[in-house]
Amino acid sequence: MTQALSRSDKQPSGQLFHNNEFMNDLRLQMLKFAILQVRNEALAEDAVQDAMLSAYQNIDRFNRQAALKTWVFAILKNKLIDILRKEKRYTNASILEEGASLNDEALIDHLFTENGHWQKDERPQKWDEPVHSVESKHFWRIFDTCLEALPAKYSRLFMMREFLELDTNEICDNEEVTVSNLNTTLFRARLRLRECLEDNWFQGENNT
C-alpha cells in the first residue's frame, strides 16, 4: 500500500498528471473514438496507450487541459491513420463517403413532406428520460450500432464534437472542413442517429 503511494509520488510533477479524473476521462474519450474509427479494440488500445504515454512523457509542457487534449488527440489521430492505411481502409473511406450525400437526400425525403414539414408518421416521439432506460447494456449496443452505421466522416466529426468535446476551430483545422460544412455534417449525423435510436430503441420500447 505505502509502496504504491510512494511510487505514484515519484511520477512527473505536472499538475495535470495528478488530476486522475481528467487523465482517465481523456483516456476513455480517446479510446471510444479510436475503437469506432479502427473497429478493432486491440489496435485501438495500443494507439491510445502510445498517445497517452507520450502525454505522460511531455506533461510538463502543458498547463491547460485543453492544450494537452489537443496534443494527445493529434498524436492519436496520426496513429489511427497509420493503422487504417496499413489495412488499406483509409483510401476507401472517401469512396464510401461519396454515397453519403445521396442517402441524406433520401432520409430528408423520408422524414419531411415536399413543403418541408414533418411526415405524420415520422414526427419525433417523446424519449423516456435517459436515466434508467439508457443505462442498460442493450441500449449501448444499439447506440454502438447506430454510430457504426453512420458514414465514416459523419461519425468522426460527431465523435470529435460530442466525445472529445473539441471546439469548432479545432475540428475544422484538423479535418480541413469549413465551419458551415461541419455544422451541416453534424446536423446530418444527429438526424441519422436520432432516427436510428428512435426506430431501434425508443419506439420499440413504447410499442411493446
Binding site: 476521462d25 476513455l28 474519450q29 471510444k32 419525433p124 417523446k126 424519449w127 435517459p130 439508457v134 443505462e135 449501448w140 447506440f143 460527431f158 460530442e162 466525445f163 444527429r190 442517429l193 436520432r194 435510436l197 428512435e198
Partner: peptide, 16 residues
C-alpha cells in the same frame, strides 16, 4: 429535446 438528449447520451456513453 432529442438533440439535447443525444449530447447527454454521448457523454454518458464515453464514461459509462
Amino acid at each position: 429535446k432529442q438533440m439535447l438528449s443525444l449530447r447527454d447520451i454521448s457523454q454518458r456513453y464515453v464514461k459509462q
